[in-house]
Simulated scan of single mutants.
Amino acid sequence: MDRDVRDLTAAGAKPTPYFPPIVVNRAARRRPDARLRVVLLNAAGGRKVREILACLRRPPLQSADVILLCEVNTGMKRRPGRDLATELAEALEMSCAYAREFGLRPPGSESEIVSYMGNAILSAAPFEDVAAVAMHKPPTPMAWPMRMRRWSRVGTPTGLVTRAKFGGEELTVGLAHLHSRCTPAERGRQMATYLESFPAAGRAIFGGDLNTTTTELSSRALILATARQMLANPDRFRAPEGYEPLFDHLRERGLEIEGVNVANRATFTFSGLIPRSMRPKLDWLAVRELRPIAGTAAVVAPRSPILMRRASDHDFVMVDLEL
C-alpha cells in the first residue's frame, strides 16, 4: 500500500483542495483480453455499500478495470472509522484514490470532523500520480438532508485526476461531481476550472455525476418551473447537451461523449412514480484517443436481483473500450 503519492495540485493551482487525496495502491490485475471496462456510479453516500458491491460482482459490471464513484462518504455511524471507498477497493482487489470534498462537524462541535463526503476512483492498475483538483464553488447553496441542517462543513468541491498504466499504455483517469442546484453556466465554470488540471493531450477517461439538469434548482419556484418543463419538453432532460455549457469545455479538451454513453437514456430515478420518459440524464463518461466497443455502452439499475431494491437513486453507467 502506498499513501505517499504525489499531489499534482501542489504547484500553485487555484483554487486549492481543502484535503489531500488518500491513495491505496495494489498490484495490477490483468485482463485476459485487450479491453478496458469502465463503470460509473453516484453511490448516494454509500449507505448500501453491500448491495453496490454485489452489483459490481455480477454481469454486466463484473471485472471492471476502472470504477468511478461519486458521493462515497467516510466515518458513517454504522461503520465508524471505515472508509467506504477503500472498503470497496479491498473487496474488489483494486487500487483506490479518494478525494474528500467536505468534512462534516456535528452540532455543537467547532473542530471535530466525524465524517467526510467525497469521490473515488478504483483501478485494476496502481496509480502513478494522483491529484485532488479543487473546482469553482458556485454561490448557490447545496441541498442538505433535513437531519443534517444543523451540521457544519468545511471544504470545497473537489475532483480527481489520476494516471495509471493499462496494458503498458499510460492513461489519464478523471472524476468530478458537479453542483446539482446552480445554473448551467456555473456548472460550466466548475468544469472549466477542473479541466485546467486535466492533461490537454493523450489517452484519457473522464466521468462523473455532472448534474446536467439544464436548469437552476435553487428555490421552490425554480423547482416547480422545472417540473412544468419536464411535462412540456421531457426530451431536453435526457438529451441536455445543448443546454449545458460544460459539454463545450469537454470537447475543447478533446473528450468525446459519443459512443460511450447510451443516447437519450436517463440515469437518475428520484421517484419510481416518475415515468422513465421524464427522468433526467445526469451521469456521463467521456474519452479521448480511446475507441468504445460497439454495443457495450449501457445504463444498469443498481438493484438486487432478489429484493429488487435500489442501492442508489442513480444508475450505473458503463462501457468497454479497446486498449
Rank of each mutant, 00 (worst) to 15 (best):
N211C: 10
T212I: 03
G207Q: 15
E216A: 13
E196T: 14
A227M: 11
L231Q: 15
H177K: 03
A225W: 00
L195N: 09
T226H: 04
S180E: 11
R189N: 01
L222H: 07
T183Y: 05
R187E: 07
N211W: 10
I223G: 00
P234W: 11
P234I: 10
L178T: 06
N211R: 04
S218M: 02
T212C: 13
N211T: 08
E241S: 09
Y194P: 05
T226C: 04
G188Q: 03
Q190S: 05
S218Y: 04
A232T: 07
T226R: 04
G242F: 13
S219G: 02
L231W: 15
A192L: 10
H179N: 06
T215I: 00
T213R: 04
E196R: 15
P199K: 02
A200C: 08
I205E: 09
T193H: 05
S197F: 11
N233D: 09
Y194H: 15
L231N: 14
D209V: 00
F198S: 05
R189H: 01
T226M: 07
F198H: 12
G188T: 03
P234E: 10
G208R: 04
G188C: 06
Q190V: 03
E241Q: 14
G188E: 05
P240N: 02
G202Q: 06
A192K: 07
P240H: 01
E196C: 12
G202E: 10
R181F: 12
Y194R: 11
E186M: 01
R236V: 14
C182G: 02
L231P: 05
L231T: 13
A201S: 12
P184M: 11
T213V: 04
L195K: 10
N233W: 02
A221N: 05
F198Q: 05
F206S: 13
D209Y: 02
T213Y: 09
L217Y: 04
S197N: 11
A176E: 13
G208T: 01
G202V: 10
R181H: 13
P240S: 03
L224D: 12
A239W: 12
R236Q: 14
T183R: 15
L210A: 10
F198K: 08
T212V: 08
A239E: 13
H179P: 02
E196Y: 11
E216L: 02
R220S: 06
S219F: 04
D209I: 02
A192H: 08
Q190K: 05
T183F: 07
P184C: 09
T193A: 05
E196I: 08
A232M: 10
Q229S: 06
I223S: 02
A225L: 02
S219K: 01
L195H: 12
I205A: 12
T213G: 03
A204C: 14
P199H: 00
E241H: 14
T183I: 12
Q190A: 03
A225R: 03
P199T: 00
I205R: 07
D235C: 09
